[in-house]
Simulated scan of single mutants.
Amino acid sequence: MLELRTDRLLLRPFAPEDEDALFGLWNDPYVRRYLWDDRLVSREEVREQIALSERDFRERGYGGFVLSLVDWPGALIGFCGLRRIEGREDVELLYGLYRDFWGRGLATEAARAVLRFGFERVGLKDIYARADLANAASIRVMERLGMSPHAPPTVTYRLRRSDFAP
Score class of each variant (00 low, 15 high):
Arg121Glu: 07
Arg12Met: 05
His150Thr: 13
Met1Trp: 09
Leu76Lys: 04
Phe101Leu: 07
Thr6Asp: 01
Ile77Ser: 00
Gly81Phe: 08
Arg60Ile: 02
Ala134Asn: 12
Glu45Pro: 00
Ile50His: 00
Val141Asn: 14
Phe23Thr: 04
Leu22Gln: 00
Glu19Met: 07
Pro153Ala: 15
Val122Asp: 02
Arg112Cys: 02
Ala107Arg: 10
Arg144Val: 04
Gly87Asp: 10
Trp36Tyr: 06
Ala136Asp: 10
Met147Ile: 06
Arg112Gly: 02
Arg112Ser: 01
Asp7Pro: 02
Arg84Gln: 09
Gly24Leu: 11
Thr6Phe: 01
Arg88Asp: 08
Glu92Trp: 13
Phe65Leu: 09
Met142Gln: 13
Arg58Asp: 05
Ser53Thr: 14
Met147Gly: 06
Ser53Tyr: 12
Thr6Lys: 01
Glu143His: 12
Asn135Thr: 12
Lys125Arg: 15
Leu97Gln: 05
Tyr98Phe: 13
Arg130Leu: 15
Tyr30Ser: 13
Ala21Arg: 14
Glu109Asp: 09
Val70Pro: 06
Gly96Lys: 00
Phe164Ile: 05
Ile127Asp: 02
Arg60Ser: 06
Ser148Ile: 09
Ile85Val: 13
Leu159Gly: 01
Tyr30Asn: 12
Arg161Glu: 13
Gly105Arg: 12
Ala165Cys: 06
Pro29Lys: 10
Glu86Phe: 15
Arg144Phe: 06
Ala131Thr: 15
Gly64His: 06
Gly64Thr: 03
Val155Trp: 03
Arg60Val: 00
Leu69Tyr: 08
Tyr62Lys: 09
Glu86Lys: 15
Gly105Asp: 03
Gly118Cys: 08
Val91Pro: 04
Leu82Trp: 02
Arg43Cys: 03
Arg12Gln: 07
Gly146Asp: 08
Val31Thr: 04
Thr108Ser: 14
Ser53Trp: 11
Asp71Pro: 13
Leu145Lys: 02
Ala113Arg: 00
Leu9Ile: 03
Met147His: 07
Arg158Tyr: 09
Glu120Phe: 01
Ile127Phe: 01
Arg130Tyr: 14
Leu25Val: 07
Gly81Arg: 06
Leu22Ser: 01
Phe23Gly: 02
Gly105Phe: 06
Arg99Met: 01
Lys125Ala: 07
Ala137Phe: 12
Phe101Cys: 11
Glu54Ile: 14
Gly146Trp: 10
Arg104Ala: 09
Glu45Phe: 01
Gly146Pro: 04
Leu35Trp: 08
Ser42Ala: 08
Leu94Pro: 00
Gly63Thr: 10
Gly74Ser: 01
Ser148Glu: 15
Lys125Leu: 05
Ile127Gly: 01
Arg144Asp: 03
Trp72Gln: 12
Gly96Ala: 11
Pro73Gly: 07
Val122Ile: 06
Val66Cys: 02
Leu145Asn: 00
Glu17Met: 04
Gly78Asn: 04
Asp18Tyr: 07
Asp126Cys: 10
Arg8Met: 11
Pro166Leu: 01
Thr108Tyr: 06
Glu109Gly: 06
Gly74Cys: 00
Asp7Trp: 00
Glu59Tyr: 13
Arg88Gln: 13
Leu133Gly: 15
Arg33Val: 04
Gly24Trp: 09
Ala15Tyr: 11
Phe101Gln: 11
